[in-house]
């Protein structure tokens, strides 16, 4: 089956002040219809930039996006003229950001912002768009949607704004929803509400979801598959259960071990020493080697390639075979 969204060997290079900055070095991802791919990574890992590149939202004057392949369904996005590609955004491919105010215009009413989507993509007159917008607000759990249509963003709570943004993204029933930390700024209670909405919409329409998060609990609940990003590279890809049960990359292992859970009190937390590398100064060998407990000399000199382990599982570590044997 054709994946709903697929990118192969994505690289994003920004024009820096002195020299080019490679934010994303080698990222390959794919997500099938009705499935959820979670992309996990820390700041500087390139997860947000990868999403922006897939949406075509990076400024071509300041950045270079390269990929062997970038396809939405059967459509080759890289070969598409800019105007046609833009027409797909918000229609077949939609995105939700961490801060809802990124996508909301403070000067416009909710009604204007929602109906605009249908006016542009569906060529609907406003009068015809209003009932659809109201129905979508109600579908994302906003009470009294007719009244909320007249509201302005500042009159809504953070959780409610994120629902409005989600409603906006879902209005055209996109094939793929890209969500960049959509619940990070929200309370756990509101996070659960928003995640459940995404699940429900996915069940109704069969859309594919790419969810960027740093919360492994969110991953456990939402993901079918997981890609772990570190230093601009996918270091491990696996089905969610495999990733939690038998993490292969030392970074994934350490990350899972470092999370405090309510089950383990008064235990010392496992710690990954040091901090994630800045895109300005990535180490020459394996990007994780300076923080890795298992690094040997060879790790410091050459970038490991992505090794396929079967069932779509990959790992980027030269020692994974010997480490897996213990």
């Amino acid at each position: 089956m054709t994946p709903a969204l697929e990118v192969d060997s994505l690289a994003v290079i920004f024009a820096g002040e002195r020299e080019p900055i490679t934010a994303v070095e080698d990222v390959s991802l794919s997500v099938a219809k009705g499935r959820t791919l979670c992309v996990v990574g820390e700041s500087g890992s390139g997860k947000s930039v990868s999403l922006l590149a897939m949406m075509g939202l990076l400024d071509p004057r300041r950045s270079t996006v390269q990929a062997r392949n970038l396809r939405l369904g059967g459509v080759d996005l890289l070969g598409l003229p800019a105007a046609q590609r833009r027409a797909l955004n918000g229609d077949r491919l939609a995105m939700v950001f961490q801060d809802p105010m990124t996508s909301l215009n403070p000067y416009l009413s909710i009604a204007t912002q929602l109906t605009e989507v249908l006016e542009v993509h569906r060529k609907l007159p406003r009068a015809a768009a209003v009932p659809q917008a109201i129905a979508m607000l109600s579908a994302v759990g906003i009470s009294a949607p007719e009244r909320r249509m007249r509201a302005y963003p500042h009159e809504l709570s953070g959780g409610m704004r994120q629902r409005v943004v989600l409603a906006m993204a879902l209005l055209c029933h996109p094939d793929v929803l890209l969500a960049d930390e959509p619940t990070t700024a929200l309370d756990v209670t509101i996070q659960a509400q928003v995640l459940q909405l995404i699940q429900q919409q996915q069940a109704n329409t069969g859309m594919a979801v790419v969810l960027v998060t740093h919360d492994m609990g969110v991953v456990a609940h939402m993901a079918d598959d997981v890609a772990v990003l570190y230093g601009g590279l996918v270091v491990e890809r696996a089905a969610v259960r495999d990733l939690f049960a038998t993490p292969q990359h030392p970074y994934t292992q350490a990350l899972l071990a470092s999370i405090p859970s309510k089950g383990q009190r008064n235990q010392r937390l496992h710690v990954i020493a040091g901090s994630p590398p800045s895109p300005l100064s990535r180490p020459p060998g394996c990007v994780f080697a300076p923080r890795c407990a298992f690094a040997i000399d060879r790790c410091l000199t050459a970038r490991p390639a992505e090794t396929a382990l079967g069932d779509g599982r990959t790992v980027r570590c030269i020692r994974h075979a010997e480490l897996a044997r213990g």
Binding site: T189, V218, V219, H221, A223
Partner: peptide
């Protein structure tokens, strides 16, 4: 406490998201 995601995909799948 129920709103906090579980850190285990098997248990998370079995229980689902608990929403207040």
């Amino acid at each position: 406490l129920r709103s906090v995601p579980l850190l285990d995909p098997v248990a998370a799948h079995a229980r689902g998201l608990q929403v207040l």
